[in-house]
Design a protein around this nucleic acid. Structure first.
Length: 193
DNA sequence: CTAAAGATGTCCT
DNA sequence: GGACATCTTTAGA
């Protein structure tokens, strides 16, 4: 399956977050390929969004959010965790979608080894968990997701029907009025309860 | 099972 | 110097 085109990402961030649900994240390592279905995502925009890193304007850390759409924005937080976003909106306009949870499909053995657990449900049901399972670190910050490289996103070749639910975003203090967290209803790999 | 606390680096004021 | 888009471990019911 070919990676999603740049035009997919070059739209309103909330719309992209919705449509990323059910898509497949692909991570290519030296001798392994990891695949998983995106089951939870959050939208973060710019000056209109107090919860966003880009709210304060362009800085060294968040500059990827202002760059071209369809790139990975990886940042380090809480002193020990990485989180994976994909950039959205046209160049110059900040936007990113945080991938919060993934349903493992392929390479589960390798994920278990990386995560140090054999409980499938705990492999990638949270933003920092999935980056560890998928070996995503700062080295992938700014990586182009529209080519078949180390990391990209494709359509699911075995799609199943699902319904989308939305709530306020998690772990933030500002922008709680915006229901910009989206997840697949009833999916056991969604974080929280 | 739930609740509480600790770990820990980087960014921004 | 304080806050942080989190997870794990430990203690207790």
């Amino acid at each position: 399956m070919a990676p999603l085109a740049r035009s997919f990402y070059e739209r309103h961030t909330v719309r992209v977050a919705n449509e990323l649900l059910g898509k497949v994240l692909v991570r290519r390592l030296r001798s392994t390929v990891l695949r998983g279905i995106i089951v939870e995502a959050e939208a973060y925009r710019g000056q209109d969004d107090p919860a966003s890193h880009a709210y304060v304007g362009r800085t060294e850390r968040n500059q990827v959010m202002f760059g071209p759409p369809g790139h990975a924005y990886v940042y380090f937080t809480y002193g020990m965790h990485y989180c994976l976003n994909v950039t959205t909106e046209p160049i110059g306009q900040a936007g990113a979608v945080l991938i919060r949870a993934i349903q493992p499909v392929k390479g589960i053995e390798a994920m278990m080894k990386r995560r140090g657990t054999d409980r499938i449900r705990d492999l990638s049901n949270g933003p920092a968990k999935l980056t560890e399972a998928f070996a995503v670190t700062a080295g992938l910050n700014g990586h182009d997701l529209t080519t078949v490289g180390r990391l990209f996103i494709t359509e699911n070749d075995k799609p199943e029907a699902f319904r989308i639910a939305s709530t306020s975003r998690i772990g933030i203090t500002g922008g709680l009025d915006k229901p910009w967290r989206f997840f697949i209803k009833g999916n056991p790999f969604v974080s929280k309860k």
